[in-house]
């Protein structure tokens, strides 16, 4: 890795000030993507601003009918949190299957969605849950937050504080992992709640996470796996790589969607 300078702020304000003062700085959450990327010399931040020690960024609570998850809450805590498991087991299950146990101790929700890796799991959940992303500057709806592969609506000096969502009636995630990396080769998060049915697909889109409107319509009429039978997913705009063609991913989207609905 290239040379860098490590900082450990105690507050969001201090972190924001460090970001503002160092234009080539990067936020370091769990580091489970950033550190490997730096090791491969594919990222060269001048400064690293560690968010793991800011208490305000950590923890899960329920307020005003919404679940709030601190941005620096590690996956293992999300997976094991009783409040969340009662309100939205589908999200807890998703967190329980991100990466591997070691990654889950370190990796955080905020880090995952800020990076918006096309193969990350959390973005699909945020999108399907219609979550709100609370930052150091504003609140952003998930539909506006994810703007493309590795792209979000975040400003350079903006820090995610938490996400919140109204627990859906039903929600579940089904993923098919890449046989090598075990990242989502296709993952589908489905929800049914006050805002209707939402279906979000990760791992498959060449623009990152996206909603599947046709499935949402079909499931709104009948929230059952069979409701998806007549739908043909187009391979257009889907990722192509060694492990999956666009056509195969299109098929996986449908299969994972059916399985998610069945599990929800």
């Amino acid at each position: 890795m290239y040379e860098t300078t490590y900082h450990r702020p105690a507050s969001v304000e201090e972190a924001a000030a460090l970001l503002a003062a160092n234009p080539d700085a990067k936020l370091l959450a769990g580091g489970q993507t950033l550190v490997p990327t730096m090791k491969q010399r594919l990222a060269a931040p001048s400064d690293l601003v560690d968010l793991r020690h800011i208490a305000a960024l950590r923890g899960i609570s329920s307020e005003g009918g919404r679940i709030i998850i601190g941005a620096a809450t590690p996956h293992a805590e999300v997976a094991g949190d009783a409040t969340l498991r009662a309100a939205c087991p589908g999200l807890a299950d998703l967190a329980a299957h991100i990466g591997d146990p070691h990654v889950r101790y370190m990796g955080t929700l905020g880090g995952s969605i800020a990076n918006n890796d096309p193969a990350a799991d959390y973005p699909s959940a945020m999108l399907a849950l219609g979550a709100t992303i609370h930052t150091s500057k504003r609140d952003i709806g998930a539909d506006d937050f994810f703007t493309g592969m590795f792209e979000t609506a975040l400003d350079e000096d903006e820090i995610i504080i938490a996400v919140s969502f109204a627990p859906p009636e039903r929600a579940a995630y089904a993923k098919f992992p890449n046989p090598a990396s075990l990242y989502a080769m296709t993952g589908v998060f489905v929800t049914k709640g006050s805002a209707g049915v939402r279906v979000a697909v990760t791992g498959a889109g060449s623009d990152g996470v996206f909603r599947q409107a046709e499935m949402e319509a079909a499931l709104s009429a009948d929230f059952s796996p069979a409701a998806l039978d007549g739908i043909t997913v187009s391979p257009e705009g889907l990722l192509e790589d060694l492990h999956a063609s666009a056509a195969y991913r299109a098929s996986l989207i449908k299969t994972m969607a059916r399985r998610a609905v069945a599990a929800a």
């Binding site: 046989p179 090598a180 990396s181 060694l242 492990h243």
Partner: peptide, 13 residues
């Protein structure tokens, strides 16, 4: 080499 790490080369787990 497209399979130059464990990200792309599927090792038995």
């Amino acid at each position: 080499l497209l399979t130059a790490s464990y990200m792309d080369y599927a090792m038995p787990r």
